[in-house]
C-alpha cells in the first residue's frame, strides 16, 4: 500500500497514525507533509527509526516551494510528479491520510 501524507507532523498526528497502522510499505510525503522529511525537524528521529520498514519518498516540487529542496534528511527519496504517478502505479492501493 502507498501511504500519502499531506500534513506536517508537528501540527497533526496524521503521519504518526499512518506509521501505527502499517507494518511497512511506502510513504509519500506531499504538500505540508514534506516538512517531516526535512533535516533537524522534531519528527526526524521517528522517521529515521522506521526507515528499515518503510520506504519514504517526498515530493520535490513541494519541498522546493517551501525552501527545503536542499535540506532533505538522508534516506528519503525525492520524486517529481511523474515519480508520484509511478508510485501510484507500483502499489495496488493508495491511502491518503487526510
Amino acid at each position: 500500500m502507498l501511504n500519502i501524507v499531506n500534513k506536517s507532523p508537528l501540527d497533526r498526528n496524521t503521519l504518526q497514525s499512518c506509521l501505527d497502522a502499517n507494518t511497512g510499505g511506502a510513504i509519500l510525503l506531499i504538500e505540508d507533509g514534506v516538512f517531516a522529511a526535512t533535516r533537524g525537524n522534531a519528527f526526524e528521529a521517528k522517521l529515521k527509526a522506521v526507515q528499515g520498514t518503510f520506504k519514504v519518498y517526498a515530493l520535490g516540487p513541494d519541498l522546493d516551494a517551501r525552501g527545503f529542496g536542499d535540506r532533505v534528511m538522508d534516506g528519503v527519496t525525492v520524486v517529481d510528479y511523474a515519480g508520484f504517478v509511478d508510485l501510484v502505479a507500483e502499489f495496488k492501493t493508495c491511502q491518503s491520510w487526510l
Binding site: 504538500e31 510528479y81 504517478v85
Partner: peptide
C-alpha cells in the same frame, strides 16, 4: 493545495501514458 496537487498529478499521469 489539494486541487493543485491533483492537477499536476493528472497531467503527469497523462504524460506517462496512463
Amino acid at each position: 493545495e489539494a486541487s493543485d496537487s491533483a492537477f499536476h498529478f493528472v497531467r503527469a499521469a497523462l504524460a506517462r501514458g496512463h
